[in-house]
Amino acid sequence: MEILATGVQRDERPLLERAFPARHRVRCLETVLSADTLPLAAGYEAVSTSANATLDAPTLEGLVRGGTRLITQRSTGYNNIDLDHAERLGLTVARVAAYSPYAVAEFAWTLATALNRRIVRAASRTRDFDFRLDGLLGRDFHGRTAGVVGTGRIGTAFAAIARGFGMRLLGWDIAVNLECTELGMEYVELDRIFREADLISLHVPLMPSTHHLVGARRLAEVKDGVVLVNTGRGALIDPAALLDALKAGTLGGVGLDVYEEEAGIFFYDKALEAMSDDTLARLMTFSNVLITSHQAYFTVDVVEEIVAATVRNVDDYLMGRITECTLVPRSP
């Protein structure tokens, strides 16, 4: 079978090309799949997509007309796919059910420590041979409180690192994770985390109940100097409320690897274009805001796991198997 892989990052491509066995061929394109790029997928029974693909009803219908029967997405998230319509069309849809949580947890800590110790500002200064310490005063994380919002695999890995720093742990989730309680975590109401934590890290999935989980009311209650990190989903934070909180000066630092309106911006070179997203442009103006383009997962270890799961999804489709990665099973 020949597979079309779209939205492939340059560092990802050799891993994809090596992973597929001889019985399959893969064509890798940097272009992201959407209604505008549908002609590229014509004739491919299997299409592998990135998380920023637009797989709404019109795009899915176009894929089916072009002969596609399998979509295997190289991510755990799938809110970009109209699964109900895919099922009506008889499409098989699969994803990556899980991968190592350490890459994202470690990256969340990278953002937190860089913000706390003013690393970006310090590095920029020293490049200009300015070695003053003015404005670079940080705080010890040791002895302070980490609030972990979402204590699944990634949140647990984040909490374990926080424990290594010697931090007090507060957690919030719909269910208690015994691994976290063994680390000394106290499960509390979400509002209490925002009142007491010195560092808050978001690790919950995006669903109607978590959309804009961090809004004006909770941001108004945070401790002065709190560091807020989001490596989960952009829409967990209300960006307008975040701007207001930053202007109020209560936030010590904000680290965002995701952004609510990142589609069409993240993963692209926009250096020679005017930034059309006014909110994102304004966020960039704050010296205590650090924004990266959805790269928390992007380690060779995780990408190899994602690629291996993608190969298995193709084989499972051909064999008619349903696995933990299956979102819409193959029609009988």
Rank of each mutant, 00 (worst) to 15 (best):
V149G: 02
T299G: 10
L133R: 12
I265A: 09
E179I: 03
L242K: 01
F165L: 03
G77W: 06
T59N: 12
L137K: 11
A42N: 13
L236H: 12
R312V: 07
R218D: 04
A160W: 01
T113D: 13
A309D: 13
Y102V: 11
T151D: 04
M1Y: 04
R88W: 04
D315K: 07
V32R: 06
E305S: 09
G66S: 12
L133W: 08
P332L: 07
G150R: 02
A5R: 02
L280I: 10
L283H: 05
L15S: 07
A245W: 00
M185C: 12
V96F: 11
E221Y: 00
D301T: 14
T92E: 02
P21C: 06
F158P: 00
D36N: 06
M319E: 15
L246R: 01
I81Y: 00
L318A: 05
L83I: 03
M284I: 00
Y187H: 08
T326Y: 12
L169C: 10
A122V: 05
A281I: 08
L272T: 15
L190H: 06
Q73R: 05
D198E: 09
E12N: 09
E262K: 07
L206V: 04
L111R: 03
D56M: 10
I322S: 13
V314Y: 05
R144Y: 02
P58L: 13
V176W: 00
G155A: 03
Y44P: 07
Y44G: 06
D11W: 14
I174C: 09
D224P: 13
R144F: 03
L242Q: 01
A103W: 02
R88E: 14
L136P: 11
A146H: 01
V32C: 04
E2A: 08
F131N: 03
T49A: 12
F165I: 02
R233F: 07
D238F: 06
D134M: 11
L236T: 11
R321A: 13
S48R: 00
M167L: 03
P101E: 09
D269A: 08
V120H: 07
R330P: 01
T72A: 13
S124V: 13
A41F: 09
Y102M: 09
D82W: 00
P208A: 11
A274P: 15
R23E: 15
N52Y: 15
R321V: 08
N80E: 11
A240L: 10
Y259R: 05
A197Y: 12
L60P: 12
A41I: 12
T110M: 12
S75F: 03
E45K: 14
V104S: 07
D128K: 14
V120Q: 11
E61K: 14
V188W: 03
F141L: 15
D224C: 10
R139H: 15
D269W: 09
L318F: 00
E305Q: 15
E186K: 10
Y78A: 11
V104Y: 02
R192F: 08
G264P: 08
